[in-house]
């Protein structure tokens, strides 16, 4: 697992208080919302804040944000692309 991906998963677990869950247990390609992790829209806003504070990446375009929230892989790629150097 890449370092960034591990940090993304750790941020998700901490931010959403997924107690008892480890980064290994989050599938890279399973949907974050609905069937996969079962997150809801309130969790989405919590993640927007978490990404901004942890990775200094602002999600201002909601459509792009929703693409990024597809799964851990897409979220990691989005953060890698937008992270300040």
């Amino acid at each position: 697992m890449s370092d960034l991906k591990l940090r993304v998963k750790t941020m998700i677990i901490e931010r959403l208080k997924l107690e008892g869950m480890t980064p290994d247990q989050i599938d890279d390609t399973a949907p974050l919302f609905g069937d996969g992790l079962g997150l809801d829209s309130i969790d989405a806003l919590e993640l927007v804040l978490g990404i901004e504070q942890t990775f200094k990446v602002k999600i201002e375009d909601e459509a792009a944000g929703m693409q990024a929230f597809k799964n851990v892989d897409s979220l990691t790629a989005f953060i890698a692309e937008h992270q300040p150097a």
């Binding site: 949907p31 919302f33 609905g34 069937d35 997150l39 809801d40 829209s41 309130i42 969790d43 989405a44 929703m66 929230f69």
Partner: peptide, 8 residues
């Protein structure tokens, strides 16, 4: 609206 994200 977030696809697949139901309201509470």
């Amino acid at each position: 609206s977030v696809p697949g994200a139901p309201a509470r």
